[in-house]
């Protein structure tokens, strides 16, 4: 059978009385190269470790996180970096050691010397499979939980008017068209602004659509992103928790002036927001 030869190991049949697992591990670690690779892995791992914070520092340059969603995103990015460092460090350590540690030949002619014929290694392959599966499982579980969390924080499964809390959520109709964003506030007499005004700590729901081509509504520091599709309305939402001025960019190529299709978000305290809305012509608060 072909399958048998495929997965057969070339190793000699394992004797029934192999040394105990601990003994075998001790024997393996006692090999010089094994110890060197482990040390190298740890060193490379610690060299890579600061990346976890540097990545967040780059993301936070313009004031993020300004919402619980963005906090969840940054937490995800941080932990994904942390869990992927050991595996990356191990692979890099093997790369480095295989060039510098084990033998190396750089002649023009094929080397006469042959290397050990390791066709497979049950322990190694099982460990790799288990570790990578556990990591993938972790990613999936983490991703599912976080996705459920940000879903609950955005468009959610709960209709806007049934949200807990004494305050009605703010509803904003976002319309993309080449190459401007328009924000309409149906709760404020349909006041319309080119800059997105939000109220601090008040949930906001976005209905997003487009009048021509596909745009992508990206409120960068709030961690909100959804396509503005022509012929369909998409929903998302967020609760801004930080007052300040943030960015809206278009994250989907939308033609000639795609690069300039950006505007600002002003997250204002409650009174200032009400005043701003009155100024825009939306006197009635809902």
């Amino acid at each position: 059978m072909a399958h048998q030869t495929l997965f057969d190991s070339d190793e000699p049949e394992a004797p029934t009385n192999r040394p105990a697992a601990t003994g075998r591990i001790r024997e393996w670690v006692s090999r010089p190269y094994a110890r060197a690779i482990l040390i190298l892995t740890v060193v490379i791992g610690f060299v890579l470790l600061p990346l976890a914070w540097l990545i967040l520092a780059a993301m936070n340059q313009t004031g993020a996180p300004a919402s619980p969603i963005m906090e969840e995103i940054e937490k995800t990015v941080f932990w994904f970096t942390i869990v992927s460092i050991p595996m990356t460090a191990f692979v890099f350590a093997v790369l480095v050691y295989s060039l510098l540690g084990w033998k190396r030949i750089s002649s023009d002619d094929p080397p006469m010397q042959e290397s050990p014929a390791i066709r497979t290694n049950r322990t190694g392959t099982i460990m790799w499979t288990v570790v990578s599966s556990v990591l993938a499982f972790f990613l999936v579980v983490w991703g599912m939980i976080e996705l459920a969390a940000i879903t609950a924080n955005s468009y959610g499964t709960i209709p806007a008017d049934q949200q807990p809390g004494d305050e009605q959520p703010l509803i904003v109709n976002v319309t993309g068209q080449q190459w401007v964003w328009t924000f309409e506030y149906p709760g404020y007499d349909g006041a319309t602004t080119p800059v997105l005004y939000l109220e601090k700590d008040r949930p906001v729901y976005f209905n997003v659509t487009s009048k021509d081509v596909i745009h992508n509504f990206w409120a960068v520091e709030l961690g909100v992103k959804i396509d503005a599709n022509p012929g369909a309305a998409t929903q998302t939402g967020v609760t801004p928790t930080k007052a300040g001025v943030f960015n809206v960019r278009c994250a989907e190529l939308c033609g000639l002036h795609h690069a300039y299709m950006e505007t600002t978000i002003e997250v204002l305290p409650k009174e200032v927001f009400a005043a701003a809305m009155r100024e825009m012509g939306g006197g009635k608060t809902s």
Partner: peptide
């Protein structure tokens, strides 16, 4: 990386 493992690298 398993194939690189403990091999003699002919660094062409």
């Amino acid at each position: 990386i398993g194939t690189l493992w403990r091999g003699t690298a002919w660094t062409r």
